[in-house]
Simulated scan of single mutants.
Amino acid sequence: MKEQWFGYSSNKKVFERLGARLDRFLHIASSAIGTILIAISSIFLSNYTLATEIENIADAKGFLVFLYENPWLYFISGAVSLLLGAIGISKDHKNLSEKIGALTQANHELKGEITDITRLSDNRRAELDKQAEDTHSLRGDIATLHEELVRQWLINFPTPKDKKSYCRVSLYYYSEKSFTLLARYSENPRYSRMHKQRFSQNEGAISKAWQHGEWIDSDCPDYTQDVEAYLAHHKEMYLFEREKTVSFTMKSCRIFALAVKDAGIRIGVVVFESDKSDALNARVIKELKEHCAKYESNMAKFMRQGMLYDRALNLQRAPSAAIEQNDVLKSLRSAA
C-alpha cells in the first residue's frame, strides 16, 4: 500500500512539522522578510510621487493598483516586520539567557548535592567495608573454635596406649566432589598439623571408605623398611603419584577408614592411621567401629557445621547498594 502525503491514513504529518519549524523560526523569518522589503522598496522610492499616484485613483480598481504598486506601503510593512522580528529575537535571547542561567545554577546545586552525597556514601562504604571485615574475621574465629572443639573431641577415640604418638585420627567432610579436612588429632605434634588441601573423590583410603562404607589396609609396606614397595603400593592401591606420597608428613602403613552417615546419607569419612604395623590390630579396629557407631551422629553434626563455616568463609561479598550508588555518583561527578 502506497502511503499518502495527506489524509486520515497518512503518518507524515507535513503541516505539523511545518508548524513546529514556523514556531521556532518566525522571528528570524520576520526580520529577514522585513529587510528584503525595505531593500527592494527603497529602490523605487526615489522615483515615486505619492501625491500624483493618489490623484490618479479613479475607482476601487485604481485603489487596489495604488496599494499594490506603492513602495511606501512595502517599506513601512518591511520596517514593521523587521521591528517585530528584532523584538522577538531579543526576547528569545533574553529567555534563553534566563534558562541557561537557571540550568547553570541548577547544575552547580546538583554538583554540590552530588559532592555531599558522595562524601556520605564514601563514609558509608568505609563502614560497610569495616563491618564486612569484622564479619569475615568473626566467621574465621568461629571456624577455628569449631575446629578446636572437634579436635578436643577426637582425643577420646580409642588408640593403643603405647602407640599413641604413632597414630592419628582425622575427620573429612565431602563437598564439591572432594574431601576437606575438618579436624585431626595425634599426640605427635608433627602428625596433628592441619592443612586446607582437598583430596579427590577418586584417590586415597578416603575414597575407598566413601565408596565401600569402610576400608582396612593391613598390607601396606613400612616406609622405613622398603620405600619403593611403599610408593608402589600407594600408586597401585590409591592412585597417588610418587611425589605426592613422598610429600606426606605421616607415612602410614596401617589404615582404617569409615564412612560417616547423616540420615542414611554419607557426608564424610573418619580415618585412623598409624606408621607402625602393629598399632591397628583387629581388637583396636573393633573398638574403633563400636566407638564410631555410638558417636556417628556427633561426627555428622560436626561435619555439617564445618561445611557451613567453610562456605561462609568462601562466600564472595556481593557489592552493596551503597557501593553501587557511590560508583554512579563518582561517574556523574566526573562527567559534570
Rank of each mutant, 00 (worst) to 15 (best):
G85Y: 01
A132F: 09
L96W: 09
W72C: 05
N123W: 00
G85A: 03
D92I: 06
V150P: 03
I76L: 10
K99R: 14
L73E: 03
G112F: 01
H93S: 09
G112L: 12
D134S: 13
H93E: 08
S137D: 06
D122A: 08
L103D: 10
R125V: 07
I100W: 08
K130C: 04
R139W: 10
K91N: 10
E133D: 12
S90K: 02
T135L: 13
D122L: 08
H146E: 13
L84N: 02
G85C: 05
R125M: 04
R119P: 00
E109V: 09
F75C: 05
A106R: 14
G78T: 05
A79F: 06
G112W: 01
R139E: 10
A79Y: 01
S81R: 00
H146S: 08
L128M: 08
N123P: 01
Q152A: 07
Q131H: 08
S97E: 14
E127G: 01
D129Q: 12
L128Y: 07
A102L: 09
S77L: 12
D129S: 08
H108A: 09
L149F: 13
R119S: 11
L84V: 11
L138P: 00
A106F: 02
A143W: 02
I117C: 04
T118F: 03
Q131L: 13
S137I: 05
R125H: 02
K130A: 14
T115C: 03
Q105L: 13
G101D: 11
N123Q: 12
S81N: 05
L73S: 05
L120Q: 13
L103W: 10
K91W: 04
E133C: 02
G112R: 06
K99P: 01
H136C: 04
H146P: 04
A126H: 03
H146G: 07
R119N: 10
F75L: 13
D116A: 13
L149Y: 14
F75G: 06
G112A: 07
L145N: 11
G78L: 05
G85R: 02
S97F: 07
T118L: 15
I87E: 04
E127N: 06
G112D: 10
I76Q: 02
L110Q: 13
A132T: 09
S77A: 15
T115W: 05
R125Y: 02
E148K: 15
G85T: 00
A143Q: 02
A79H: 02
E147F: 08
S137L: 10
I89N: 00
G88S: 02
E147I: 07
H146Y: 06
F75S: 08
D92E: 13
L149T: 15
A79R: 00
G88T: 04
L96K: 15
S90R: 06
V150H: 07
S137R: 14
N123S: 15
S97G: 09
I114T: 07
G85V: 03
N107A: 13
S137M: 05
G101P: 00
